[in-house]
């Protein structure tokens, strides 16, 4: 059965289903139990599963993640919620030096099957201490899996897969997407496997890769490109950055010969910088134009509404990048493709 639900409900359902399926799964974090989550993602969980499996914690990110690492090593399957991506930096030691490294340090004899959920992204005037995008930062760490869903169905399917995975998973949610609605399966066995990109729209002239909220911006830009510029854009949502479904992206680039990567994070060392390198390394002879990146501005996220909006990519930025990538190749007299 499919039902139209919001992303926050899809995430909640994923956790509830997995907690019913496996008694070792539990949730902890700041305000996740009594208050039911800062973004109401854990609504109803304490009522169903009790305070033992849905635990409020003090404001102590490194400790929360550290408890999660220990619990995971001891056989439980913790889901740790950090209130924002920004706050996860307080727990970097546990995430990078422990969760990611322990399976390697002990030759796989100790596993850390845990999920660390964290919402990020800008657009709500929460300023630089609450609004950043750190996908690239976690993408860099070997040992971590990184998920970044953009639809309710993917959010549910990926979170269920993350809970069942034997590796520590950084599960990044976008605050602006919690309220979006989408068709979601209530089949408890259905998951979305990591490392499988979704082609959101098929096209011939340019490949646009977008993650999280930028997957939607990319789709809107593609619609306008088709309508106003006669450019047929293929839109790909990788859904997970590690593992990354590079094959799907490369196949698309070999078809369109052009790529534009859209992310909300910073430009230097970003998701787009990394993907651009991979495309250039592996599809160099298929490129008819340099890979274009559309990124957040190279500044800490401003608080002022207008400045914040100016620092976040929008459709027009994507269209501008696509026009730069397709200049001379598509348009009157070019015969297009």
């Amino acid at each position: 059965m499919m039902a139209e639900i919001r992303m926050r409900e899809a995430l909640r359902d994923a956790m509830a289903e997995e907690m019913r399926r496996d008694g070792n799964v539990f949730v902890m974090g700041e305000d996740v139990a009594v208050f039911q989550g800062a973004f109401k993602v854990t609504e109803g969980l304490m009522e169903e599963f009790g305070e033992k499996r849905v635990r409020d914690t003090p404001i102590s990110e490194n400790t929360i993640v550290g408890i999660g690492v220990g619990a995971a090593m001891a056989g439980l399957r913790p889901i740790v919620e950090l209130m924002t991506v920004n706050f996860s930096l307080l727990a970097l030691d546990q995430i990078v030096n422990h969760a990611a490294a322990i399976p390697y340090m002990f030759n796989g004899n100790a596993r850390v099957p845990m999920v660390i959920r964290m919402p990020g992204g800008g657009g709500h005037q929460l300023g630089p201490t609450h609004s950043h995008s750190f996908e690239a930062l976690y993408l860099q760490v070997p040992g971590l899996l990184v998920a970044c869903p953009s639809t309710p169905a993917d959010a549910k399917g990926l979170l269920k897969a993350a809970i069942r995975d034997e590796n520590p998973v950084i599960f990044i949610e976008h605050e602006s997407l919690y309220g979006i609605k989408g068709e979601v399966s209530d089949d408890e066995d259905e998951i979305v496997r990591f490392g499988e990109a979704a082609v959101r729209r098929e096209g011939e002239d340019v490949t646009i890769v977008g993650i999280l909220k930028m997957a939607h911006v990319a789709e809107q830009a593609a619609a306008e490109l088709e309508e106003k510029h006669g450019i047929s854009a293929e839109v790909i949502d990788p859904r997970t950055l590690r593992p990354l479904d590079l094959d799907t992206i490369l196949a698309s680039v070999r078809k369109t010969n052009r790529a534009v990567i859209v992310e909300e994070g910073w430009p230097h060392g970003g998701v787009g910088a990394n993907l651009s390198t991979l495309i250039t390394e592996q599809a160099f002879d298929w490129l008819d134009a340099p890979v274009q990146r559309v990124t957040g501005a190279d500044v800490p996220m401003p608080y002022s509404r207008r400045m914040e909006q100016a620092a976040i990519p929008h459709e027009e930025n994507v269209i501008e990048a696509v026009l730069a990538a397709t200049e001379g190749a598509i348009g009157p007299g070019k015969g297009g493709s």
């Binding site: 490129l287 190279d298 620092a311």
Partner: peptide
């Protein structure tokens, strides 16, 4: 990169020091 969210990969001023260099995309070259 500039302070506005945009594509940072725009080519800079044309390099006139390499008059013999033909600008050609990798795909076109292949």
């Amino acid at each position: 990169p500039s302070g506005t969210p945009t594509a940072p990969a725009q080519a800079p001023v044309q390099d006139h020091d390499h008059a013999e260099h033909i600008k050609v995309s990798p795909l076109a070259r292949r």
